[in-house]
Design a protein around this nucleic acid. Structure first.
Lengths: 130, 130, 130, 130
DNA sequence: GTGGTCTAGACCACA
DNA sequence: GTGGTCTAGACCACG
C-alpha cells in the first residue's frame, strides 16, 4: 500500500480507498481485525489522526465497525458494499471524462475510441492527478 | 458561458475549461482578444481574482499571451494545444477510472460495460458536485 | 450557545446538535451563511478543528453545503432534514429510557407515569450526563 | 445474562446494569454472594478487568460490599437503592429526550405522541448500537 | 494494548 | 478572508 502525498486527493481518502479495495478483493475477511491505528500509521508514515479519519469514513459507509479497546473489524455485509462503492467511484471517473470530452466537442465514437486506447494501455503507473 | 458554483470543481478551473473549449471550437480565433478581466468578472458575477487565475492557467498552458496594457490574446498554436490538452484531460479521467476498476478486481469486459453504461446516460445533470 | 465540556457527548457533536436545532427552529435560514470556523471557534473557545468536525457532520447529513473560500451555507432542504433528524434523536433517547425501565421490571403504566412526571417538570437545566 | 458486544454501551456498564436489575428484581438477595470475578468472566467470555470495573461501579453506588478474601455481597439496602438508581436512569433518559424535543421546538403534545409511539414499539431489537 | 476526542499550530486551495 | 488537510502530542475510555 503506497501513499501519494503530492496528489490532490487527500491522504485519508487514499487510505480509505486502499482498504475499501482490499475488502472488495477479499484481502480482509469479514470479522477480521484491521491493522490498528498506530500500526498502520507507523507503516504508512502518517499521523494516526489521518488513519483515524480514513477508518471513520469506512465506518460511516458501514464497511467496518469499531470496538473500543479491541480494534476495527470488517463488517459482514462489507464485501457487497465495498464493491458497489468502488463501482460508483469508477462510474464517476468515467462520467467526468465523458463530460470533458463532450464539452470539447468529441463525438461519441471518438470518445469510445479514446477509452479503448486507455484500456489497452495496461498497467502503466498513471499516478494521481498530482 | 455558465458557472456552477455548487460544483466542487473550482470556479477558476471551470472558466479556464470553458475558454479552452471555446478556442478548441473556434469561437475564439487566433490573435483575437479575450474579454477583459473586469468585463468577464462582471458578466459571470465572480471575483476578478478568480478570472485572473483562470487566465494565468491558460497562459501557463501557452493557449493565450498577454500584451501589457492591451489585453489577452489567443495564441496562434492555441487550437492544436487546446485540443490535445482537452484530450489529455479526458484520457487522464479514463485512466483513473480504469485504475480504480482494476484494483477492485473488475475484468476488462466488465470495465468496458460500465463505461458503455456511462456513455449511454446522456447529459443528465452531470454538473453535480463531482 | 453553550458547551458542556464535561459531558460524555463529544464537543463537536454538541455543536452540531446546536446548529441542527437552530436550523430546525428557523434561526438559520436556507442559503444563509453560518458563522465561519474561526469565528465560531473564538466564540465557543474551542479549537477550529473541533468546529470543522461539527460542520463536517452537518454537511454529511445534507444540512449545510460548503464553498471553499466563501463559507458554509444552510441547504435548501435543511429544515425538513433537521426536523426529522432531531426527532430521531428524541426517539432514541426515549427508547433508551424505556429499555432501561423495562429491564428494571416496570410495567408500561408505571413507565408512562414516570415520563409524565418528567414532562411536567419544565425547564430545569438538566445538564448532560456528565 | 447476555452481553451485546456490538452495542456502543460499554460492556462493563451492561454488566453492572444486569446485576442492578437482578438485585432490584430479587434474583440476588441481601447478603448473598455474587459470582466471583473469574467465574463471571468465564461465563460471559469477557476480560476479568471488565467484570472488575462493573463491580467497582456497583460498589461505588453502595449496592454491594466486598469482604476481602471472601467475595462480593449484596448490601442490605441494595434493593431500594437499585430501584431508585434504575428509576433515576430512566428519568435522566426521558429528561434528555424532552430537552432535545423542546429545543427543536416540538410542543408538549407532540412530545407525548412521540413517546407513546416509542412505548408501543415493543422490544424490537432495541439492543442496536445505541 | 485498542479506538476516540481535543488542542495547537502549520500549510494549502480558493474567492 | 473562507474552508480543508495534516502533524504532533496529549488525555480519556475501554478491555
Amino acid at each position: 500500500m503506497s501513499i501519494n502525498s503530492n496528489s490532490h486527493v487527500p491522504i485519508f481518502r487514499q487510505i480509505a480507498e486502499h482498504i475499501r479495495t482490499g475488502i472488495s478483493a477479499g484481502i480482509y475477511q469479514p470479522d477480521e481485525m484491521l491493522p490498528s491505528l498506530r500500526a498502520l500509521a507507523l507503516e504508512l508514515v502518517v499521523n494516526p489522526n489521518t488513519i483515524q479519519r480514513a477508518y471513520e469514513e469506512l465506518e460511516r459507509e458501514g464497511l467496518v465497525y469499531s470496538r473500543r479497546g479491541l480494534g476495527l473489524f470488517v463488517a459482514r455485509q462489507a464485501v457487497r458494499s465495498a464493491r458497489s462503492q468502488s463501482q460508483d467511484d469508477v462510474e464517476k471517473a468515467f462520467a467526468d471524462g465523458i463530460r470533458l470530452a463532450r464539452s470539447a466537442g468529441l463525438p461519441d465514437d471518438e470518445i469510445r475510441h479514446v477509452f479503448s486506447k486507455s484500456l489497452a494501455r495496461k498497467m502503466d503507473k498513471t499516478g494521481g492527478k498530482s
